[in-house]
Computed example of a mutant assay.
Amino acid sequence: MDDLHSATGSARHAGNSASDPAARSVVPATAATIAEVSSAGQRIKANIERVIEGKQSPVTVGIAVLLAEGHLLIEDVPGVGKTKFAKALARSIDCSVRRVQFTPDLLPSDITGVSVYNSEERDFEFKPGPVFANIVVGDEINRASPKTQAALLECMEERQVTVDGVTYGLESPFMVLATQNPVDMEGTYPLPEAQRDRFTARISMGYPDRTAEIAMLSEHAALDPLDSLPAVSDATEVRTLIAAVRGVYVSESIKAYAVDLAEATRRAAEVRLGASPRATLQLLRAAKAWAALAGREYVIPDDLQLLIAPVFAHRLLLTAEAHVAGRSAGDVLRRVVQQVPIPAPAARATL
Rank of each mutant, 00 (worst) to 15 (best):
Leu351Glu: 14
Val299Cys: 03
Pro173Trp: 00
Glu140Gly: 00
Ala264Gly: 02
Gly70Glu: 03
Val183Ala: 10
Thr112Trp: 03
Arg272Pro: 12
Gln338Ala: 15
Gly274His: 07
Arg202His: 12
Gly54Met: 10
Asn47Pro: 08
Gly129Met: 01
Lys255Phe: 09
Pro301Gln: 08
Leu170Tyr: 06
Val136Phe: 01
Gln101Lys: 08
Glu121Gln: 15
Arg24Gln: 14
Arg202Pro: 01
Arg239Ser: 12
Leu66Ala: 10
Gly81Leu: 09
Asp123Ala: 15
Asp94Val: 07
Val27Ile: 04
Val114Leu: 13
Ala309Arg: 09
Gly247Cys: 13
Thr103Gly: 03
Pro78Ala: 14
Ser251His: 10
Glu154Ser: 12
Asp164Pro: 11
Arg12Val: 02
Val238Lys: 04
Ala68Pro: 06
Val336His: 07
Val340Arg: 00
Gly165Asp: 11
Arg266Phe: 06
Ser145Lys: 13
Ser145Cys: 04
Asp234Thr: 09
Gln56Lys: 13
Ala329Leu: 05
Ala347Trp: 02
Cys95Pro: 10
Pro58His: 00
Asp197Gln: 07
Asp76Cys: 11
Ala256Thr: 14
Ala256Pro: 02
Glu171Val: 00
Lys87Met: 14
Pro104Glu: 09
Lys84Thr: 15
Asp139Glu: 09
Thr148Tyr: 04
Asn47Lys: 07
Arg50Ser: 02
Leu284His: 07
Ala313Trp: 04
Tyr207Cys: 09
Glu263Tyr: 07
Glu252Phe: 06
Asp331Val: 03
Glu270Met: 04
Ala347Thr: 08
Cys155His: 09
Gly70Val: 00
Ala46Glu: 05
Leu73Glu: 10
Pro341Phe: 06
Ala194Gln: 09
Pro28Tyr: 05
Met1Glu: 14
Tyr117Cys: 08
Val136Gln: 00
Val336Ala: 08
His5Arg: 15
Pro58Gly: 03
Lys255Ser: 14
Glu121Ala: 15
Ala325Pro: 11
Arg272Ile: 14
Val163Arg: 05
Glu75Val: 11
Ser119Tyr: 08
Val114Trp: 05
Thr8Tyr: 00
Arg315Phe: 04
Val250Lys: 02
Gly113Thr: 01
Val80Arg: 09
Ser25Trp: 02
Leu307Lys: 09
Asn47Glu: 05
Ala322Met: 04
Ile141Val: 14
Gly169Ser: 13
Arg99Pro: 03
Arg12Asp: 11
Leu170Phe: 06
Val80Asn: 00
Gln338Met: 12
Leu273Arg: 13
Arg99Trp: 02
Ala68Tyr: 08
Val299Asp: 03
Ala18Glu: 15
Lys288Arg: 15
Ala268Cys: 12
His314Gly: 10
Gly113Gln: 06
Ala325Tyr: 01
Ala262Met: 05
Ala86Trp: 01
Glu297Trp: 08
Glu53Ile: 12
Glu252Arg: 12
Ala289Phe: 10
Pro58Leu: 07
Pro345Tyr: 01
Ala88Ser: 13
Val137Tyr: 04
Asp302Trp: 06
Ser119Gly: 03
Arg198Glu: 08
Thr211Cys: 01
Ser10Trp: 06
His71Asn: 10
Thr179Trp: 05
Gly169Pro: 12
Cys155Pro: 07
Met175Gln: 10
Ala289Asp: 05
